[in-house]
Design a protein around this nucleic acid. Sequence first.
RNA 1: GAGGGCGUAGCUCAGUCGGUAGAGCAAAGGCCUUUUAAGCCUUGGGUCCUGGGUUCGAGUCCCAGCGCCCUCACCA
Length: 508
Amino acid sequence: MSHSQVEDRKAKLARLRELGVDPYGRRFENVTSLAEARRMGEGYNLEPGQHAEGSSVRVAGRVMLHRPAGKLVFMTLRDGTGDMQIAVSKAAVSETEFAVASKLLNLGDIIGVDGTLGRTKTGELTVWANTVTMLSKALQPPPEKWHGLKDVDLRYRRRYVDLFTNPGVREVFKQRSLIIDAIRRCLVERGFFEVETPVLQPIYGGAAARPFTTHHNALDMKLFLRISPELYLKRLLVGGIERVFEFSRNFRNEGIDTQHNPEFTLLELYQAYGDYNDMMDILEAMVSAAIERIGGGYKRKFGELEIDFAPPWPRRQYADLLFEYAGVRIDDVAAVRKKAESLGLEHVGMDDALVINEVFEATVEPKLIQPTFVLDYPAPICPLTRRKPDDPNIALRFEAFVAGMEVGNAYTELNDPAVQEENFRRQLAGENREETMAVLDEDFLLALQYGMPPAGGLGVGIDRLVMLLTGSTSIRDVILFPLQRPKATSEAGEEGDEVTAEDVEDGP
RNA sequence: GAGGGCGUAGCUCAGUCGGUAGAGCAAAGGCCUUUUAAGCCUUGGGUCCUGGGUUCGAGUCCCAGCGCCCUCACCA
């Protein structure tokens, strides 16, 4: 590379040092946020051209725009709360500071400014600098100031740039944080307490999914990254934690698309002495609390759709919906298989219940746009769920759908250890699909034998819920660092990265 | 896994029929005390994703590969 902007910036960095300026700053105390500085400024009711005499404010942020005009320099600073204009007049600051502000600064640098509040002749609220402090020299140029960073690949790979360049991205993740906080408070208020259960598991379970595997060196044992926290949380029910929840990161070694990321966040909660009816109430309450927290009301846009989250959500029978959308009765196996055939679905040699569910997924789920609870699933596909007392073919399970996506999954939990063991064993003996629960968790069965209270349990796909509430149609837009294939960036040290992670021992 | 699209300067993008690389922003130097994506003058900056092939000549056409996006398939 003969000449790069990075080189230019390094040269400026050297000149800063020559002038005795630390390009990377130090502690900068008592900073007022730009939003707060704006509020203060508004409070003075200034006329255009007027300054608030005696006002004093210290702000800091990244230089997003730079408009030098001779002996006066305007710039737009950005911090976590917004943007604000800074003006540096040559007459008001030291020679070095003016050199910094007018010549040695680049877009993307982080600076601190002490000054007074005022309005420009055109009425823009502005911090007029008395001092300018270099806090961080950016060696890499930021993206173009008008169009920003558009390249989707780069936005994910360099999320840090995406975040300061595209304010809407920050807003989505702020809302994600608020949604999670609202849900957590909602549960804590109801007497639930939060736990953390193992991510590294010798036996995986609680869902049907292919796991990631890893290895522990000292114990020389194979471990799985969890696919679900379910079996551990139920152990806690046995232990007497009667209302328990976990925001759990799970890992499923499966495809990636707009609704699936290999690692994702699943909220699971269990309530002793309850059942799936309680879980419906709680889900509605949590979503309402989240919406209240982020604002914007129950009616929300999602892509082309408008979704009304106002509770109560319709509670529909699985069998009724199947008949309504697929035109087949759930107990008419021949008709269901014929339907599967006409839909081009695989069904030969498959269990009846699986075929029914294939048809359901193909015909009903995409139609469930408005929030809907689907109740009472075919029992064989629900090994962890209690059966309906008067019909052992039906499991007391619901899934909640919005915009055709599954966002919630709940059971009246099965607490009969004998039935549970039988279900597991049937599962093992049945389809030997590699992703089904391939390992019998005997300790879990042992736990049930000590007695688990009857309970309702609920899982909520947090990423998908955040998608729906923030209008993000791709799961990658609500995950800060979605998994990307590594790209050969021709940076030094790319080679040999096979070796590193596995063999390097932990530090302290 | 299948189909489609995209990949050109730091960023956002043009690039005609195959004729030897362009703009804006950004950057460097200069001028400017009221700008709002400031303006004006000057200058520098390219592995046209990678590797082959066709051709006198390839950013452009062909083949293979890589990365990303979309749709489908897969996915309790």
